[in-house]
Amino acid sequence: MNANRAVRQPGLDELRLLAKVARMYHEKGIRQPQIAAELNLSQARVSRMLKQAVDVGIVHTVVTMPSGVHSDLEDELQGRYGLRDAVVVDTLGVGDDVLPALGSGAAAYLDMTLTGGHVVGISSWSETLISAVDRMPRKSVPVVDKVVQIVGGLGDAAVQMQATRLTARFAELTGGMPVYLPAPGLVGTPAVRRAMMNDVSVRDVLGTWGQLTDALVGIGSLEPSPLLQRSGNAVAEADQDELRRLGAVGDVCFRFFDEEGRLVRSTFDQRVIGVTAKELLAVPRRIGVAGGERKYSAIRAAMLGGWVNILITDLAMAHRLLEQ
């Protein structure tokens, strides 16, 4: 209906017929062809009358949110932060450990939105992503072409198994071919990084980053997670001090940013073997899965800087992000 055009008010007899048609359709569940036959009307006229019943206020549409569904908050997050999509996971009653709920929410979202032909980049160091992949159902047909590691994974042997398993398991569940990055996530000097980036096996992986349709990433705070600490790739205290002085509040794939989401240029950034900021920001769907109180500044900055354009987070975090 054109908002600038006044709705013609029908007479009483016409209103009675509109109300009758509306009740038959909405209350009694009678289909339009049957209504048309019973009232000796054309089906096209019945369709027009149902629309008119809405226009004149006989029928009001009310959407009632099921328990645990927060579409209103998701819409607000999209509008406030310019997101492509948002998923708010109900975490009422789960306490401080929101990771299992976030994993389930991310698994369900990926199951619904991976529909075929995707090239997915996946960050190695995220307990939330591990939780999500552990909960994903296996697809009956392939929906992903490649699953590409976008941050180096070599570190402590036990945790390296987790990084490899994350990429391999995601590929197995979605029917994609796994592509591993045979390099550490962090090296000692920029010169070592340059040498490793020129290795033929690493260059082959780098060539796939420009093909990514999706990036599945965690959002880190400045203090490393327990998984990252165990990995041998944790940010050293001296590096944390430098990043803190430069205003860093969080990272995606070891690329640290300030509270407005701007890349923090540091010596640390020159030692990372992984997707660059420019490459990541060029990926059409950048799916960030993160929650928990300590991640607030990092999550907010990641959205402001466009590091993620799809956010999967918990209910308390969604409220807090919208309060500011």
Rank of each mutant, 00 (worst) to 15 (best):
L206Q: 14
A248D: 05
Q324K: 15
Y81G: 08
L99W: 02
V151Y: 02
G207T: 10
V159H: 02
D258V: 15
E242G: 01
A101N: 00
L181V: 12
R255Q: 15
A158W: 08
I299F: 06
K278I: 09
M49P: 04
G288N: 09
P178F: 12
A132Y: 05
G153E: 10
V202I: 14
P100Q: 08
A316F: 10
L280Q: 04
L77G: 00
V148K: 03
Y109G: 01
V141D: 03
A158Y: 07
P182T: 06
D13C: 08
S221E: 12
L92R: 13
R165A: 15
L173G: 00
M303R: 11
H319V: 11
L83K: 01
S131C: 06
L102E: 03
M317Q: 09
P184M: 15
G116R: 13
A236R: 12
L227I: 10
A44L: 10
T167L: 08
K146F: 09
A158N: 09
K51G: 03
R45E: 07
E38A: 14
A301W: 04
I150P: 01
Q78Y: 06
A215V: 15
T91K: 01
W125L: 06
T167Q: 07
R300Q: 04
T276L: 02
L280R: 08
D241S: 11
R8M: 01
I30H: 00
H118W: 08
A86C: 06
L50R: 13
R245M: 10
L222V: 06
I122W: 05
G261E: 15
M49Y: 15
G11T: 04
T267C: 00
G247W: 04
V275W: 00
G152Y: 03
P182D: 04
V62T: 12
F257K: 05
